[in-house]
């Protein structure tokens, strides 16, 4: 189904960047790292379209741009509709010989706001219609561009400016929407999750998402030091911890068949390697209040819910061995 793509770190380093330096992202920005990596995995001519959000704003301040490939932004909720329009135009223009290229790939980029919330209608519609494009969700778990407001992707207990941890309420009271599962439920050919620490896994999944015929969805974990109140030097470490704690497991669903990816398989096969969520939460200021006597019960809730979700995933992946918390 997928072509064999062999590459070394050197190959990737030497491949020209399509997302160039000079943009105005913050130090330690997860999404900027993710975008640079994603663009290393393209197979040929590619058009990128971007929802409104941090990555659009930092990389396209007129008259400057960080994009060395054609790039379109229209609005916040429109990444998938943009991709639908571009893909449709390319298809008919190729048929009418109005363009020369045999193949031009289309990638849509959106943050959690542009995917979980305001953009989900356009995304669901474009996937249902079967447009051939890769939708990449870079998930930094809140509306960071407007100043850290909660989204459907913000996890339980996180303090944001619209779900602040106060004396009565311990941050966000609702769960993170299982967006990738929702996309699998569309019956689309390719859905995967990825995290930039596991860069090789990420690149392979981008390439697969591009190669597959029809819509593909890639959910990429993307730490935001400003919003998470975390050390900018630890963004990549956090993207490893999220996988090791099984807060953000890595998997693929090809034609709705779930399969654990190698980094998460380690935790499935050797449950003792699975870390406690506390390790991940305690290095982020957005969860600081959970480490006070008043709200520490929520820490237990987060561990329990993480374990339950992990068990459900293992079941979907056909792994029966129960994974015990370390």
């Amino acid at each position: 189904m997928f072509s064999e793509w062999k590459f070394t770190a050197k190959d990737i380093a030497e491949k020209p960047d399509l997302f160039l330096s000079g943009h105005r992202a913050c130090a330690g920005c997860g999404p900027a790292t993710v975008l640079r990596l994603i663009m290393k995995a393209v197979r040929g001519p590619t058009i990128v379209t971007n929802a409104t959000g941090c990555m659009e704003v930092v990389a396209s301040i007129y008259p400057y741009t960080s994009w060395a490939t054609p790039w379109l932004h229209t609005a916040f909720e429109t990444a998938a509709a943009n991709a639908a329009g571009i893909e449709t135009a390319l298809k008919i223009m190729k048929k009418k010989s109005k363009i020369k290229q045999e193949q031009i790939d289309v990638i849509a980029l959106a943050g959690d706001g542009g995917t979980y919330d305001i953009g989900i209608q356009a995304l669901s519609g474009a996937v249902e219609r079967g447009h051939d494009f890769l939708f990449v969700l870079y998930d930094n778990e809140a509306y960071m561009n407007t100043g850290i407001q909660r989204s459907g992707g913000t996890p339980l207990g996180a303090s944001t400016t619209t779900s602040p941890a106060g004396t009565a309420i311990p941050g966000k009271l609702e769960h993170k929407k299982p967006i990738a599962d929702i996309m699998v439920a569309h019956g689309m050919p390719y859905v995967a999750t990825a995290s930039p620490y596991y860069w090789r896994d990420l690149l392979v999944k981008v390439r697969r998402g591009i190669e597959v015929n029809g819509p593909a969805f890639l959910h990429v974990f993307a730490p935001c030091p400003r919003g998470w109140r975390s050390d900018p030097a630890k963004s990549i470490e956090l993207s490893r911890l999220a996988v090791e704690t099984c807060i953000f497991p890595l998997w693929e669903a090809v034609n709705s068949e779930y399969q654990l990816s190698a980094p998460s398989k380690v935790m499935a096969l050797s449950p003792q390697k699975k870390k406690l969520v506390k390790e991940y939460l305690q290095v982020q200021g957005r969860f600081r209040h959970l480490f006070t006597p008043k709200y520490e019960k929520m820490l237990g809730d987060i561990q329990r819910i993480t374990d339950e979700r992990w068990q459900r995933l293992l079941k979907k992946c056909g792994i029966t061995q129960p994974a015990k918390t370390a």
């Binding site: 509709a81 329009g85 135009a89 390319l90 008919i92 356009a122």
Partner: peptide, 19 residues
């Protein structure tokens, strides 16, 4: 499309592509 919002957006993006 699934809405008029996406209908016009798709037209805009198609037009930007050259269609």
């Amino acid at each position: 499309t699934e809405s008029e919002h996406s209908a016009l957006t798709a037209c805009l993006a198609a037009s930007a592509t050259g269609a």
